[in-house]
Amino acid sequence: MLEHYLFLSAALFTLGVVGVMIRRNLIVVLMCLEMMLNAVNLSFIAFARYLGSVEGQIIVLFTMVVAACEVAVGLAIAVAVFRSRGTINVNDVNLLKW
């Protein structure tokens, strides 16, 4: 059963990566980042169950804290970018690219 959970987690992570690469909307890109974090959380919980330790669940709680911080700051940046440029298309906001 463990490997089923890990396969599901890998598939979710891949979908998140694909979303980050092909979507152009900054907010959807942030959502796909969340999806990748969630995929990793799933494998942490699966390992915690199959190793019989509680540490995996503790790490997931800390991951959620970091994810919440990331979303708050990321959305604030999105609002600021929209205010100054009038768009949140990541192709148009490329001042720091390369």
Partner: peptide, 21 residues
């Protein structure tokens, strides 16, 4: 995902997932 967490006997994390996420 919260349902999967409950399946993995991580009930607290599942509830945090529902409430926070």
């Amino acid at each position: 995902l919260a349902g999967l967490f409950i399946l993995l006997h991580a009930e607290f994390v599942a509830m945090v997932q529902l409430v926070v996420y």
